[in-house]
Design a protein around this nucleic acid. Structure first.
Lengths: 196, 196
DNA sequence: ATATTTTACTAACAAGCGTTAGTTTTGCTA
DNA sequence: TAGCAAAACTAACGCTTGTTAGTAAAATAT
């Protein structure tokens, strides 16, 4: 049965991408070798090429999976029936949630997208830019609705997106604060900072 | 005259570190080769070793220069005579200023410190941790003085430090907003977010 | 059970890496 | 101008990199 084979191939591929994500996070894309990756999977480096086309494909998979995930959620938020500032809060909480539940993928994407090869690099950057634009639009609507103070929408988006990235510091020693409190404090600071 | 010679050597060394900083920022530490670095300086790779002990030393110089710079400023803020929240604002503005005026060094340090070799890596992490602790202490004092709302100090520091890192996105296309407005908006959001 | 496809293996490649040794050129000092 | 130290060069080293070719083992389908 062709489907069963493809399923198994897929699951092996997924497994490889998963371990690669962990290693990329630990050492970075360039410092992770195919031999080390293979070792972690209990196989030889050459065997990897039965499942993936090359090292590039691993990074590509990680980065574009993230991009797709982000875009899908943006779609959802844009069509939700709620106030503008609630939309912004939804996005803030989504990004915090992603940092907590998909930490390694997010981290790798944030740091190693630079190593994507053209034309994928251009594609990725364009998607990122478009995403930030849609985010800015929502902030702008909240400003126009007088729900938040008059800040430049793009500045607000930069502040939010990067503040959330800070969870990576927290991930390093998570004993000080619980994930829940961190999320609440962060939302408190960012949302109160924006509100009128 | 021995001193003139040493001065010239030093300036050449500084020049090498400067170009290395740019390349590390563009491509990352591991993806930057000594041959490429040498090429950018109009020399052969082997000649670099008349001025530096190795590739490690370049990253070391960048990261620990930054650490020293940060610690010195922290000292200054701690001994300043002003309210607790003003101290926090000073720190926020300092970090924003560093991102604007020493962008590449800050960027490289933030991203590539992981590639420091032991025992320098441990040293660096310890310094970073200590810095965050001092920062947290100042936030805590502002909380105790009822100058800002009751957030966990460490959460606030994470939010601030990483929000400021977001300027790296802005650096990519700085045409949308001016540096001054970005700084003001960011301070506005973060400080208002903290205040009671 | 046999045939076929999938997945692992060994071996090797060309290229690039950081670095060293030894030598020549450069530029300053006496 | 001779001597000397600094800084450049060429050549090469041992090692690692991503990847390919060819082959054996394992799993699946007929």
């Amino acid at each position: 049965m062709a489907k069963a084979v493809s399923e198994k191939t897929l699951s092996r591929r997924v497994q490889i991408v998963s371990v690669a994500t962990r290693l990329f996070h630990e050492k970075g894309y360039n410092a992770t070798s195919m031999r080390h990756l293979a070792e972690q999977l209990g196989m030889e480096a050459a065997s990897l090429y039965n499942h993936i086309s090359g090292k590039d494909a691993l990074l590509e998979q990680i980065c574009f999976d993230m991009a797709t995930h982000y875009n899908a959620h943006m779609e959802e938020v844009e069509t939700a029936t709620c106030t503008a500032i609630e939309r912004v809060e939804k996005l803030v909480r989504f990004h915090i949630g992603m940092m907590l539940t998909h930490f390694e993928e997010v981290y790798v994407t944030n740091r190693d997208w630079k190593h994507l090869k053209e034309p994928l690099l251009a594609n990725f950057l364009q998607q990122r830019k478009a995403y930030e634009k849609r985010f800015s639009k929502l902030v702008e609507q909240a400003v126009l609705a007088h729900e938040i103070q008059a800040v430049h929408p793009h500045a607000a988006v930069l502040t939010i997106l990067s503040a959330v990235r800070g969870i990576e510091f927290w991930q390093r020693n998570p004993r000080n604060i619980s994930a829940e409190q961190l999320e609440e404090d962060m939302v408190k600071i960012l949302l109160k900072g924006l509100r009128k």
